[in-house]
Nucleic acid binder design. Sequence first.
RNA 1: GCCCUGGUAGCUCAGUGGAUAGAGCAACGGCCUUCUAAGCCGUUGGUCGGAGGUUCGAUUCCUCUCCAGGGCGCCA
Length: 641
Amino acid sequence: MIKDELNALLSQSVDGLITQGLLPPGDYPIPVVESPKQAEHGDFAVTFALASAKVAGMNPRQVGELLATALQATDTFESVEVAGPGFVNLRVKPNKFEGSLAEVLNSTDKRILEKPGHFARPAQPHPHRINVEFVSVNPNGPITIGSGRGAAYGSALCNLLEASGHTVHREYYINDGVNSEQMRQFALSVRALKLGTEFPEKGYRGDYVQAVADVLDTAEDHPTEWWQSEAQATMLERQRRDLEAFGVVFDTWFSEQSLHDAGIVAECLNELIAKGAADDEPRRTVLKMGKKGAIEEVVREDQPQDEDDAEGSERTVWLRSTKFGDDMDRVLRRRDGRLTYIASDVAYHRDKFNRPSSADRLITVLGPDHHGYINRLRAVVAAMRMSPSEPNGVPAFGEAAELFRDQAEQASCEAATRQAEKELLVQIFQLVRFLKDGKPAPMRKRDGNIFALSDLVDEIGQRLHPDADRKTQQQAGRDVARFFYLMRHHDTTFDFDLDLAAKQSDENPVFYVQYAHARICQLIDRAKTEIPGVIPDVTAADLGIREVSLTELHERERSLLIKVFELREEVARAAEDLAVNRIATYAIELARAYHGFYDQCRVIDAAQPDVSKKRLAIVLATQTALRAALDLLGVSAPERM
RNA sequence: GCCCUGGUAGCUCAGUGGAUAGAGCAACGGCCUUCUAAGCCGUUGGUCGGAGGUUCGAUUCCUCUCCAGGGCGCCA
């Protein structure tokens, strides 16, 4: 793509200057082109002169002049200007865009997620096998509009990681442990509704509970476990349906309980004890933290042992997670022998690493209420991955002396923690506030009903297209909801304006982008009938672009092309930062560039076939980029609106 | 107390250590007998919460601080 070519050219030029003795040898930064904020600064800008003035021992403008002279000589630029304190502003000769345009057109009609050769797929220097776990809510209710953000983000993130050259596994962790008190309450609520028995005090109300009861085909009572597994399965099915309708599918729905059933949780527990990462000493270590994560004090809380406890009660087993960066030790096995959620987490994470096509990176997407879970989760992975250490009897220093057996253990634990920081990335998405009539809309209705993701999709779809069929409504609702969820950075609280989402107007960015695509499609259709033979044949093996020469470019053509070429870089950067919102922003910018081009550049003109051909090539390239961006977001690209 | 996130135009928000900080909406004014006006163009609008520091250069990095939201269970 054009930027890579220019970067290579820059490096050559700088090397040349050094070889010629015009620049003193030194440790220079790698020169790269940047996109200027203002169009009048040219197509690309170089800040090399500013960054390297010190190394060169010259003033930045001087370095800029040298670089400009060298670049002038390459016959690549229409203009090279040194501006301001030492920027080098570049305007590229139109024909230098031909290669990049051909590259994009080669990808027309290919989906970004299908063909590895797609132009938007950057060369991935460090491809990983990434397991992305997201949504993973309890199977005791429908997917809420709060979780909707995690669903949208997680699914788009997976697309993005794939597009940037990683292998991705999409995973949903089912919190179906039979020990779960919440699931027990949910099951008992269903039972009460079905059999007319007494409703549990902490029971779940809402139509969806009744709906589960209605589905179950039984008239008699069963053990609680039966109700639990039946209610769960029914609810899970609803979740799966809702998610699918929202464009979210998983490769694996992983059952927590299956780990218990296979005895793996217990096995892991024993492993941790053997490694010294867990034990049943009756104490909990709590770290008093100062600023910047500095340990101020190690507090040892002795746990009272109830002599009165029922016979057969066991000693509490603690994960010494304070050895792995957590601020508090965590319980793995309760006194009554039940294993905790975090105990299954150990087994679960071991499993993720140990499958046949195992992951080497884990990404876990969690909601805002799980922020405190990050260190704990990392400690779990660290403890599970740690290799046991031979005692060396050298006591650790300072606070560490309270935590570790000796320096050998400290080294081992710290290495495991650092490793876990690399292997496990926890992404927190922040709260969404839903606004209706300018006021916050409650997430939970007074009757105990939850504002479900499916309600959101339906409501937006119905308000947009009151008279359309259900499929059209759902598609529209899904497109708008996904785009709204994704257009803000996931780690920022944002307001979801339901009225704006349901407005079919220029205020709604989704339609702004989709409209650009629809305009393109209609234009291409029209060109096929009005000026057949002029439209570049992108299906030909050796593309029609070879006949399209870019001898001159209208300003709008130029800026549109540059924007199209940016997609690949944008995908790489967004994937690097796990920032899906960049793609939404890019889509809006690309749409803007297209609308601007469309307004000023007449495409179909039988009198000027060369101009038409060139512009159609640019339009096709834009269509490819726009589709790719929308694909990544999981938003449809309609052919007409 | 500690941790996380945010504070940028009237509103909603972009912004990668670079130039005069951008967009959409709102307000005002233009552009359809030629490819979809769900569009385009222009005007108005800013102590980038505050104070220090690093840097040739800070909205961006560091420290402190103010304000707002969220989180810190033998719950999951």
